[in-house]
């Protein structure tokens, strides 16, 4: 009973710290995901060009992303980026996370583009639409719809992976839990508190994805 009371007390006392940190976590993840979509589209297109060298570059990127731990990628990119240009930690971390998520989105986007019936491309062509126009107006909208559940998954993974940003000093959710836990000599309670925040935002975004999925499926 006492420990339950203690948990809620901690929760309420730390409320404003964690709310701010939650916005930072969501901010990093949303920004990273948007950049990741750009990376994913770019490398998916490289792969679809069927030009040997470009396909190889795309494969290489995906291989690196899949083959190394995210924490290594974040450190390398963070120090790499901040060494080359003066860049706020937020953006360095965001770009590092985006680069990581982009590797997974590359595969998802490529797969969903390939899953669109070839007849769609042919129908576009037969109407005089260029390959690029058909891609933009016909193929991609369908491919994105089809990819929404996978995007949602990847987003939620990214949300939790963003906790690694705390290792380079970002005071996002996990960073705050870490700091508060150690200054108050009460790690466990703060870890449980932060878990509740993660559960909450993951729940909200799961609902959002489900809503999008339903809304987008009206047409097929």
């Amino acid at each position: 009973m006492d420990s339950l009371y203690h948990f809620f007390e901690t929760f309420i006392v730390s409320y404003d710290l964690f709310i701010a940190a939650m916005f930072l976590t969501v901010g990093i993840t949303v920004c990273a995901f948007m950049f990741a979509l750009v990376f994913g589209l770019f490398f998916a297109f490289l792969k679809l060009t069927k030009i040997r060298l470009l396909m190889w570059i795309s494969d290489f990127y995906v291989w690196i992303i899949r083959g190394t731990p995210l924490i290594v990628q974040i450190f390398v990119l963070y120090y790499g980026l901040t060494n080359i240009i003066l860049m706020p930690t937020f953006w360095a971390v965001t770009i590092a996370l985006a680069f990581h998520v982009g590797g997974y989105l590359t595969e998802i986007i490529r797969g969903s583009i390939n899953s669109i019936d070839k007849g769609q491309q042919e129908a576009g062509s037969s109407l005089g639409m260029s390959a690029a126009l058909t891609m933009r107006r016909i193929i991609l909208p369908q491919a994105f719809r089809r990819a929404i559940p996978s995007f949602g998954n990847q987003f939620i993974i990214a949300l939790k992976d963003s906790s690694l940003a705390s290792f380079i000093g970002m005071q996002e959710l996990f960073g705050v839990a870490n700091l508060e836990g150690s200054t108050n000599f009460d790690f466990m309670t703060y870890l449980l508190v932060v878990a509740v925040y993660y559960l909450f935002i993951v729940y909200v975004f799961t609902m959002l994805v489900r809503f999008l999925e339903r809304k987008m499926s009206v047409s097929d």
């Binding site: 769609q120 042919e122 037969s126 369908q142 047409s219 097929d220």
Partner: peptide, 18 residues
């Protein structure tokens, strides 16, 4: 430009579902 002048109807329709 050439295809604009030649319409085509396919066995499986190939309508744009979205």
């Amino acid at each position: 430009r050439v295809r604009e002048r030649v319409g085509m109807v396919f066995q499986h329709f190939n309508l744009f579902p979205h």
